[in-house]
C-alpha cells in the first residue's frame, strides 16, 4: 500500500498545474482550431463549414490591413528597440557612477501597465493642449492630430511601443555584456585594438545569442500587440492602426463570430509557431557549432 502511494505522489504533486494547463491552454487551442472550421457564434451552436472561414480571410480587406499593419509594426519596432537597448547597455557597462539610477530611470516605463502608458501618451499627444504639440510649435510646425491622422497614427503607436520596450532590451543586453569574459578585451588591447574595433569584433559576436533571444521575444510580442492600439486609436483612423489581435477581439466579442475569430487566431498561432521553430532551429545549430 505504501509503495503504491509513493508511486502516485509525483502525479498528485504536478496535478494542479497540469490540470489547469490542460483545461485552460491545451483544450482551448485544440477547440479554437476546431471552431475555425465552423460558423459558431456565441448565440448559436454553428455548423462545420470547412475552409470557408479561411477563404473569407483571404478576401477580407480589413484583415489584410490588420495583417500588414502588424508586420509594419513588427519591422519598425524591433530593430530600433534592440539598437537603442544595445547602445544604452554599452554605456551603462562602463564603470561610471550612478549606474543603478540610470538603469532604474531607463527601465521605469517598463514597470507601468500598457494602460497607464497609453493614458500618459494620450495626454502628451492631445491635439488641443498636449505638450508634444507645444514642443512642435516651438520648432515652427503646426499642431498635429497625431493619433487621428492617417499618416501619423501608426508611427506614433510604434514610437510609444519602442519607448516602453527599450528598458527591457537594455537590461537583457547589460546582462549579456557582463557575461563577456574581460580577458578577451585585454587580449585585444594588447594587440592594439581600439574601442570601436573591440565593440565590432568582440562585443557584437559574443552577444549573438542574447540578440537572437531579444529578437524572438520582441517579435512575438509585436505579433500580439493589442492594448496600446485599443486604447490610443481603437484601430483607427480608417483601420490604419488595427492589428491582428484587434480584429480577433472585435470579431469575437463585438460581432460574436467565434468561428471566424478563431480562424484569425489560427493565423496568429501559425505566425508564432513559425518564429518558435526558427528559434529552435537556429538555437540547436548554435549548440552544434
Amino acid at each position: 500500500m505504501a509503495i503504491r502511494w509513493n508511486r502516485l505522489l509525483p502525479y498528485l504533486m504536478i496535478f494542479p498545474n497540469v490540470a489547469i494547463y490542460f483545461v485552460f491552454i491545451f483544450i482551448p487551442v485544440l477547440w479554437a482550431i476546431y471552431l475555425s472550421f465552423t460558423n459558431y457564434t456565441i448565440l448559436s451552436p454553428g455548423q462545420w463549414v470547412g475552409l470557408a472561414n479561411f477563404e473569407s480571410l483571404l478576401k477580407d480587406g480589413i484583415f489584410h490591413k490588420a495583417f500588414w499593419n502588424t508586420m509594419i509594426f513588427w519591422v519598425l519596432k524591433v530593430m530600433p528597440t534592440m539598437m537603442i537597448g544595445l547602445i544604452v547597455a554599452t554605456l551603462l557597462n562602463a564603470k561610471i557612477r550612478g549606474v543603478a539610477w540610470f538603469r532604474g530611470a531607463i527601465y521605469l516605463p517598463g514597470v507601468l501597465s500598457s494602460v497607464a502608458v497609453s493614458m500618459a501618451w494620450l495626454w502628451l499627444l492631445d491635439p488641443r493642449s498636449g505638450p508634444v504639440n507645444a514642443i512642435v510649435k516651438l520648432l515652427g510646425i503646426p499642431p498635429q492630430n497625431w493619433l487621428q491622422d492617417l499618416a501619423l497614427a501608426m508611427p506614433a503607436v510604434i514610437v510609444i511601443s519602442i519607448w516602453t520596450n527599450i528598458g527591457f532590451a537594455m537590461i537583457i543586453y547589460l546582462a549579456g555584456l557582463q557575461g563577456i569574459p574581460s580577458h578577451l578585451y585585454e587580449a585585444a588591447s594588447i594587440d592594439g585594438a581600439t574601442g570601436l574595433k573591440k565593440f565590432i569584433y568582440i562585443t557584437v559576436p559574443m552577444l549573438k545569442p542574447i540578440t537572437f533571444f531579444l529578437f524572438i521575444t520582441l517579435t512575438i510580442r509585436s505579433f500580439q500587440v493589442f492594448d496600446i492600439v485599443y486604447i490610443l486609436t481603437g484601430g483607427g483612423p480608417l483601420n490604419s492602426t488595427t492589428t491582428i489581435v484587434n480584429q480577433i477581439v472585435k470579431t469575437a466579442f463585438e460581432e460574436y463570430k467565434m468561428g471566424y475569430a478563431s480562424a484569425q487566431a489560427i493565423v496568429l498561432l501559425l505566425l508564432t509557431i513559425i518564429v518558435t521553430i526558427v528559434n529552435y532551429r537556429v538555437g540547436s545549430k548554435r549548440t552544434m557549432d
Binding site: F24, I25, I27, P28, V29, W31, A32, L35, I220, F223, Q224, F226, V245, I248, V249, A252, M258, A261, S262, A265, I266, L268, L269, T272, I273, T276
Partner: peptide, 11 residues
C-alpha cells in the same frame, strides 16, 4: 508557443 489571444476565445 501559444499566444493568450488564441486561447482567450475558447476560454
Amino acid at each position: 508557443m501559444v499566444p493568450p489571444q488564441v486561447t482567450i476565445l475558447t476560454q
